[in-house]
Write a protein that binds this DNA or RNA. Structure first.
Lengths: 231, 231
DNA sequence: CGCGGCTTTGATGTTCATCAAGTAAAGTGG
DNA sequence: CCACTTTACTTGATGAACATCAAAGCCGCG
């Protein structure tokens, strides 16, 4: 983890379009002065379930996983987020502590703003408040939708779903390098590591995908989509 | 379904404390003039997944279930809500159509306010906007929490969980009449009707509960809690 | 180089869904 | 109001899907 020296760069940052477009020049300047830019390396924790919520964060680059840890120490992954997702919006208005933990899956740069500054802005700028409301609601809806979609599928359907999710949502390509271990895939879609591996092998034998370590290439997308839908 | 004749009663309604406490007299009067009070009988649908979102609704009395219907026609119940829950907050800021359906589980009275009037108020009243943000976020968090809690439990743990949920969250008593069928319990916690019945019977044989049709009496709460936690 | 974590495959057992079949309860129409 | 149909409830038997256990190869890292 490194704090980068990049004061006052918000006004020219391309990401400010995503959520901060409704702020006035003055408000954006205030954010810009209060923000810190932080680099997290693969595997580092942005924050932990139970930590006090002290900052609003968003991803500038990289990839993170959002997860809960059960009593028995097992992780349950809730979501995988890329830049443009506002992961840290969850619970900041309903809770004092985070309900989830976030870990960097690859080298990730995050901008953070003091939560009180952020909340103040939500209170004073109506349009901004609306935008936040909308983003937050969308994110929650997505999480619930995918969780429900996955819970009724069989294992083959879940693997197909997750392979297509990476291709479409994360990488926008049918060939990509998995950012997560087999174990993490298992944690994301509620199954065991062994079965993740088994089914990936089956898919390879059936010529649906090519696998080489973490490299995945989708060979028969139609079939995968069918399995994802019906499976 | 019946539209009740109760114009302009909001200012004296005890429920306005729950969400509308931050409105000015004028704003509350506006809500009061625009609201309609509707009675739904058991089994009637408040709105369906895919319907245009045209009203904000809240429960004055009764009980409802929130659910999705899958491609194959099966229901998946997402939540059971009692008065004080603001079920219809979900998605109203992120979507044009409802993502979920709502059905009355018992005789239920609902107040509805035109969605544009409601949204206008969110835009103009900062404190109100904050309150809405908070309520909505809490509701989403609850749904995600329980869904994740249940998905990792075995069947006995899920049944124990749901029996305790009714006792604590819904009825505040260890003896109650189930507002849902065995089939609906199954839909709520991802299992089959047969297994719901089987496990309820087991619990009865093990003297954890008494059952008489839909009447449930919890006899060994500690054991149920243990099963819910570990199961 | 050796240790721990990740990956892979096979064998085994358990949990759970499905099927079947029957009883009870609750609507429905003549 | 009673025959009829449908829906809910219940129990048992069977098999499939999946978790668990075991063992071995692989890789990165101190």
């Amino acid at each position: 983890m490194d704090i980068l020296e990049t004061k006052n760069t918000c006004p020219t940052c391309i990401y400010n379009q995503l959520l901060f477009s409704s702020l006035t020049k003055e408000e954006l300047a205030l954010i810009s002065l209060n923000k810190r830019e932080i680099l997290f390396n693969k595997g580092e924790i942005l924050f932990r379930e139970g930590d006090d919520i002290s900052e609003f964060m968003y991803l500038k680059s990289g990839l993170v996983k959002l997860f809960k840890t059960s009593d028995t120490g097992k992780q349950q992954i809730i979501n995988i987020s890329r830049p443009g997702d506002f992961v840290s919006l969850l619970s900041i208005f309903s809770e004092k502590q985070y309900l989830y933990s976030i870990m960097a899956l690859e080298r990730t740069v995050v901008c953070t703003v003091d939560i009180d500054v952020f909340k103040k802005m939500v209170e004073t700028n109506r349009q901004f408040s609306n935008d936040v409301l909308k983003k937050m609601s969308t994110l929650y809806d997505e999480i619930i939708e995918t969780k429900f979609a996955i819970s009724k599928k069989h294992l083959r359907g879940r693997i197909a779903h997750i392979l297509l999710m990476f291709a479409h949502q994360i990488y926008g390509s049918d060939e990509y390098e998995l950012p997560v271990s087999r174990k993490e895939i298992a944690e994301l879609i509620d199954m065991t590591t062994e079965n993740v591996i088994r089914i990936l092998s089956e898919f390879r034998k059936d010529k649906l995908i090519d696998i080489e370590g973490k490299k995945i290439a989708i060979r028969n997308k139609e079939m995968l989509q069918t399995i994802s839908k019906l499976g």
